[in-house]
Structures are given as structure tokens and as C-alpha cells.
Nucleic acid binder design. Structure first.
Length: 738
DNA sequence: AGCACGCCGACT
DNA sequence: GTCGGCGTGCTC
């Protein structure tokens, strides 16, 4: 190619977030193709860029075009299908191609090739700093900040001082401060003698499922498989044996797992079966390690990639299979730009590369169940647990009548009895609390005042460990007070049921029981998650109290009782998926009971136990639940029967925000689009910014082809961003509606 | 983002 | 005048 478009990788700034055209010098004619990394002159600098396409018609003064000055890597860093996929994502999720490409490439691609440096600023000449004249106010300010912090990252300093880099550079020239570049070193990954994970002869059910999936592997018109299997039904062994088959055809596999399940045990199964053919990606890897894993795939040395959401972008040259385990997990949707859902992206990549797709879950998403109904997915079912363990008994407790009977405790009588009975038998108990949003907060019993975050207007959570109040949406924190800021009484005390509170309450009834608590506070340290679980597994405590994080992949045979303190919390969220989330969560939690010998028991406490989402948890009745849930979705025309585009508007100026939200909704309605809202977001304020949102509802799968709507939204975004008061973000197929 | 340009206030 | 701080505009 003679001329090509590139996107800049070094920087992500809105203004540079587009394509630039360069001339290809003669000597690179055979080297430069799509997906190649190059060096380009850009202003006075030389930057790393990615060649994305050939340009034939140039809409830029040809004589002003500059030459590409270097080719950085001996091979394209994005395979052909990935580049196509990037273009599709850019269109589908309405974001720039450079944002997509930047998420596709590991950070280390840039750093590994250009050694990794980070700029640090340090105050070195204190005397001179003090002698800076007052008129250089910005410099003075920068010095003051550095007096406090000593060493700061370059961009953090600019942010803190709220200045451009000019004053900092001046200080550097004067020798008041020094700027150090710190090399980021990468560490190799070790496959540390992972024990071989032996082939297991498939059960009858597994054989049936394997046949269905393998037929798809060799079929011409492939459709994805929804592998529906209850917890412990042996899905992993099915995955492993399908991968074996794919390997035989010399094709590559990508296995996607929610980050939280990427535990050493899970990894050990894949590495234990396939050894160094496996590349593993997880959040604990350093940039360098991540780069190494990525390169292993690019060079064809790894045939299997196991990783979270982002692993769907592994540069496999010969993709044959993608597996999405726990496909219903919300973490498969990226919360930032590009706001992609890995299920949709995987479907597209498989379609482009003629690969098979397996979606595994015990509680599939409504999206996937609906596709089975439409015959767009095939259903493969593993109904029985692979081991002989049977499904647990589930008791639903109505907390309203419990309260009416005079039980004001957070534990129902049944749950207390069960805790006693099970621990008396030397069995272990898990107590589950829905989310930390329901942890304790300070409430004045005199006047009802609660302490909220001054920036986000949400209730601050009380953390006993640090004895401070904490905001869960920003990093705001303040000390506890003994007197109510509103009425000055001393009746302001912690209230609510956090994991700590449950632990304390439990001690009142059973002072002799030892407990382990798992939540964000106790697991923030590296490895503490695993350590706590190991302790529990080794029966160092009889009761495990935890939030969400204990629901996944926990397999402890001695647990015979699971208690859910309040099932309602998720149900009450202002979200049309609340029922689905509640059902999935409760089913997952229930699956933790009775994984060894003997029947497990689950006690679910709820203020609304007749709700179908809670009722259907009995017997893990996914079909029953799906029937009711889909009927509701259809009636209200929610996904999967329609497609939503959520538009979030943020501003510190409430009036301007509300006016613009109304204006935008009107404009959309004028064009005959169905609009929900505008409304204030359920979380009205985050980090000093008010938030409003509105939802555009289109016919399912129609947004990608609705150029008119896409252009309108991009145009609006452009115009409103230029004014600088309101910020706008667009989320196609949103999961989070808060 | 980061580079240079150029305006403008302060000081020889 | 002229020096330096710091905002502004541009990058194929």
C-alpha cells in the first residue's frame, strides 16, 4: 500500500482519537500491511501507531503527508479478524476505533517494545523552592504540593496542581525538581509443576453433550451451544474434552472465565491437562507477564488462552473455539469505553473465523435462553451433578411474619435452629449477605438523620476495622461522630446488617462458634481471599460470613447449611434485570450447600418470599423462572425482546443537565424513537457530578444498522462536549442501570 | 498528550 | 525593552 491510515497508540486524548494518513516509503512497501505497528512523525514527536487500512482517496493535502519512519514489530500485532472485529465494535458500541484497538492490545505491546518508563517528579532543591517568587504562582503551588508528597507521578502532579506542564518544566530547568524515569520490569511466568489433571471418562450425560458440541465443530453452519448445567455437573471436563478435539485439528481455543473465578485451582485444570500450550491471563499479572502471555499466543506457541473478558482479543491465528464459562456473569460487560459485552463480541469473532462458541452456565442469561427459543443457539444440558451429591433442600422464610411474631433479630428462628443443628454435627455453615451496600451506616435514632457523602449523596458505610465512614462510589472517607450533626443527640449509632454486624449478632447466640468473615475489607490484601477460604476449608472456623464473593466456585464438602440473610436486596434495585440477578445469585449461593456427602440445606430469609425469582430457586428451576421472566420482558418489551441504548448525562450544574436531558429526549421522540426517561439516575450524584439518564428502545438487533440514530447521537455528543458543561456517555446493551 | 507560539505583566 | 509565566492551538 502507498498510503495508509494509522491510529495513534501512545496517547488517548479525545482530539487525537481518530485516524491519520501517512505515506508508505518504498523500503517498507512489502512490510506494511494492516495490523502492523509503526513509528510515525507526529508534530515534533515520534509516536507508536497501528496501521488500520489502506487509503486510496486522500482527503488531506497530499504534499503535507509525512512518511512512516519505522516498522516496530516483525509481525502484525492484530490478526486480520481482530481488525475486522475492531471495526465492528467501533460501529456497534459507537466509539472510536482507537479506543477499541487500545483495549485489544495489552499495555505491554507498547511498553515491551519501547522499554517501560514512568515519569516521577521529585523535589530536590528545597531552598531554591522556597525562594521562588510569589508571582510564579503556579510554580509555587507545584512546590508546595511536592513538599507534602515528596515524589509524585508526572501526570498526578499536573492534576493536583491543576496546571499545564509549563510551570513544572520551568522548575525542572531551574533544577528545583528532578524528573526520573522509572523502568517497569516484566517478570516471567512460571508453570511451576502444576499437577497433571487427568482425563476423566465422561458420564452418559457428558457424552451426549460432547456429541452435540463436536457435531457443531465440524458443521458448516455453526450455531453456538448453550451448555446448561447445574453447579457441579462437570462442565469443565466437557470443556477440556472439546478443547482436546479442537487441538487435534490444530486450532486454537479461547476460554473466558469471570475474573473472580480465575483462581489457581481453575487455572490448574487447564494447565494440568494441556501444559505449556496454555497461556493464562489474569489481573494479578504484571504488564510484562501479560505481554509475555500475549506474545506466546501471537507466535503460535500457545494454543489455548484462559482469561477474563479481555482474553477474547487474544491474537490467535487459527481460532477454532471460544468458551464462555458462567456466561450470565455481569463482569463480561465492560464498564468503560468500549462498553462491550463479551458474549456479543465472541459471537461476532466466531462468526468471522468460522469458530464454535460454547456458553456455559447453571443459570443462563435471559438473552441466551431466548436465543435457544429462537433456535439461534442449540441447547446442551447436563442436568445431574457429576458426583452423587443431591440438590439441597431449600426453606424460604418470610421475615415479615417473623417480625410480627416478635422476632426483631436479623436471624429467623429456623436459621438459628439450623445453625445450631449443623454445627453440633460438626458440619460447616455459610452465611450470605447480598451486598456491602447494605452494610452498616450511622443512623440517629432520635431524628432519623443518616450521614451521607457530600460529593455523591449516598449513605456512608461504617467500617469497624478503621472506625471510619466510607463512600462506596468515590474514595471519600471521614471519622465517625458521637453526636448527630443534625439534632446533636448522642443516639447516633451504627445500623444495618453488614458482615461485621452479622458476625457480632451471631456471637450473641453462639459465642462458642468460630467465624471467618469475607468481604472487601478482609480480602483487600493480596492472597487473603485464598487464605481465608483455605482456612475455612481446613475447618479452622465453623461459620463463613460473606458477600457476593463467596458465591463463586467455592467447593467445600463439609458445608451442609447455607443461610441467606436477606434475599431482597438485589430484588429492590431499580433495574429490569433485578429478578434475574436475584434468581442467579440465590441459585449460585444455594449450590454451595451439600457438595460432599449428605444432603445440604439452604435457608433463605426474605421479606418477599412469594416473588417468582425467589420461589424458583427451589429445585434450581431455571425453566420455570425463565418462563415467567421472559413473559414479563415480552410484556414490557425489554431485552431480549428489544434493544436498549442508555445515554448517561453528567454535569455539576443540575439545571443545565435536566434541561439538556429533556431536550435530547424530545429530539429523539421527534424522530419517532421510543425513549424511556429522562430521569435522574438511581445513583444521582457521583464525585460531585449529577447524573441523569435516558434510554432509547429500538427493535432488537437494529441499532447496528440504524445509521441515522448513530449519527444523531455522535453529533449530539460532539456538540454538547464542545460546550464543556455536560458530559455524555452512550452504552449500547447496558447491564448497569444505576 | 506534548510541543511551540505568542500574549502580557513585572522588572531592569 | 526584554524576560519568563502560562494559556492556546495544532498535530497526517
Amino acid at each position: 500500500m502507498k498510503y495508509c491510515n494509522v491510529i495513534i497508540l501512545d496517547i488517548v486524548s479525545d482530539e487525537l482519537d481518530r485516524k491519520f494518513t501517512y505515506r508508505v516509503p518504498e523500503k517498507y512497501l512489502d512490510k506494511i500491511i494492516e495490523g502492523v505497528l509503526v513509528k510515525v512523525p507526529f508534530g515534533k514527536r515520534r509516536l507508536l501507531a497501528l496501521v488500520v487500512e489502506e487509503v486510496i482517496k486522500i482527503d488531506f493535502p497530499k504534499e503535507k503527508l509525512k512518511d512512516i519512519v519505522g516498522v516496530v514489530f516483525d509481525t502484525p500485532v492484530l490478526t486480520n479478524d481482530l481488525l475486522k472485529l475492531a471495526n465492528w465494535m467501533s460501529q456497534y458500541y459507537l466509539c472510536s476505533l482507537s479506543k477499541v484497538v487500545n483495549t485489544m492490545l495489552p499495555k505491554g505491546v507498547k511498553l515491551g517494545i519501547n522499554p517501560a518508563y514512568e515519569k516521577y517528579v521529585e523535589l530536590t532543591d528545597k531552598e531554591m523552592a522556597d525562594s521562588i517568587s510569589k508571582k510564579a504562582s503556579k510554580q509555587k503551588n507545584v512546590c508546595e504540593i511536592l513538599q507534602e508528597e515528596n515524589v509524585l507521578k508526572w501526570n498526578e502532579l499536573l492534576q493536583k496542581a491543576n496546571c499545564t506542564e509549563a510551570p513544572v518544566k520551568s522548575l525542572q530547568e531551574k533544577g528545583v525538581i528532578t524528573v526520573n524515569k522509572k523502568r517497569v520490569y516484566r517478570e516471567p511466568i512460571s508453570y511451576d509443576k502444576v499437577a497433571h489433571y487427568a482425563y476423566k471418562e465422561p458420564t452418559h450425560a457428558q457424552k451426549t453433550v460432547l456429541k452435540l458440541i463436536k457435531d457443531q465443530l465440524h458443521s458448516r453452519d455453526k450455531i453456538p451451544t448453550l451448555l446448561f448445567g447445574v453447579t457441579g455437573s462437570g462442565k469443565t471436563e466437557v470443556y477440556l474434552q472439546v478443547i482436546e478435539e479442537v487441538l487435534k485439528n490444530n486450532k486454537d481455543t479461547i476460554v473466558l472465565i469471570p475474573e473472580i473465578s480465575l483462581t489457581p485451582q481453575t487455572i490448574a485444570r487447564f494447565v494440568g491437562r494441556f501444559g505449556d500450550k496454555v497461556a493464562v491471563i489474569h489481573s494479578r499479572l504484571s504488564t510484562g507477564e501479560r505481554f509475555d502471555q500475549w506474545e506466546k499466543v501471537l507466535r503460535g506457541k500457545a494454543k489455548i488462552v484462559v482469561g477474563p473478558r479481555s482474553a477474547i482479543f487474544a491474537p490467535c491465528k487459527n481460532l477454532g473455539l471460544v468458551i464462555i464459562d458462567e456466561e450470565h456473569e455481569n463482569s463480561y460487560k465492560q464498564g468503560e469505553i468500549p462498553r462491550y459485552h463479551v458474549r456479543s463480541v465472541a459471537e461476532k469473532r466466531c462468526e468471522m473465523t468460522d469458530s464454535s462458541l460454547i456458553l456455559g452456565s447453571a443459570t443462563p442469561s435471559m438473552e441466551s435462553i431466548y436465543k435457544v427459543k429462537e433456535n439461534k443457539y442449540q441447547l446442551a444440558e447436563l442436568s445431574k451433578r457429576a458426583t452423587d451429591a443431591t440438590l439441597p433442600d431449600i426453606t424460604l422464610i418470610d421475615m415479615k411474619s417473623e417480625f410480627q411474631r416478635g422476632n426483631k433479630s436479623i436471624f429467623s428462628k429456623t436459621l438459628l435452629d439450623e445453625i445450631k443443628r449443623n454445627t453440633d454435627l460438626d458440619k460447616q455453615v455459610i452465611l450470605f449477605l447480598n451486598r456491602r451496600g447494605y452494610a452498616s451506616f450511622l443512623l440517629c435514632r432520635e431524628c432519623g438523620y443518616t450521614i451521607t457523602c457530600p460529593r455523591c449523596e449516598v449513605t456512608l458505610t461504617y467500617h469497624k476495622f478503621s472506625d471510619r465512614l466510607l463512600c462506596h462510589y468515590c474514595d471519600y472517607t471521614e471519622p465517625v461522630t458521637s453526636h448527630c450533626p443534625s439534632c446533636k443527640s448522642n443516639k447516633i449509632k451504627e445500623f444495618g446488617t453488614g458482615t461485621q454486624k452479622i458476625e457480632l449478632e451471631l456471637k450473641k447466640y453462639f459465642p462458642y462458634l468460630s467465624t471467618i468473615r469475607m468481604d472487601v475489607d478482609t480480602t483487600s490484601k493480596k492472597n487473603s481471599h485464598k487464605e481465608l477460604l483455605d482456612d475455612f476449608k481446613n475447618q479452622k472456623a465453623q461459620v463463613l460470613i460473606g458477600t457476593q464473593m463467596i458465591t463463586k466456585g467455592l467447593d467445600i464438602p463439609n458445608v451442609s447449611l447455607v443461610g441467606v440473610i436477606t434475599a431482597d436486596t438485589a430484588l429492590n434495585l431499580p433495574d429490569f434485570r433485578a429478578g434475574e440477578k436475584t434468581f442467579q445469585l440465590l441459585t449460585q449461593v444455594s449450590g454451595r450447600a451439600g457438595r460432599g456427602e449428605g444432603k445440604g440445606h439452604v435457608v433463605i430469609q426474605s421479606y418477599n418470599p412469594s416473588h417468582y425469582s425467589i420461589q424458583a430457586v427451589r429445585g434450581e428451576n431455571v425453566r420455570k423462572f425463565a418462563k415467567e421472566e421472559l413473559a414479563m420482558r415480552k410484556k414490557l418489551n425489554y431485552p431480549p425482546y428489544s434493544q436498549l441504548i442508555r445515554i448517561v448525562l453528567r454535569s455539576s450544574e443540575e439545571n443545565a443537565l435536566e434541561n439538556y436531558a429533556d431536550h435530547l429526549a424530545d429530539k429523539l421522540e421527534d424522530q419517532e424513537y421510543e425513549v424511556l426517561g429522562p430521569n435522574p439516575c438511581p445513583i444521582l450524584k457521583i464525585k460531585d457530578e449529577y447524573r441523569w439518564h435516558l434510554m432509547v428502545k429500538v427493535k432488537k438487533d437494529k441499532f447496528i444498522n440504524d445509521k441515522k440514530l448513530q449519527d444523531f447521537l455522535l453529533e449530539e455528543k460532539h456538540n454538547i462536549t464542545e460546550q464543556g458543561i455536560i458530559r455524555i456517555s452512550i452504552d449500547v446493551d447496558p447491564i448497569n442501570l444505576l
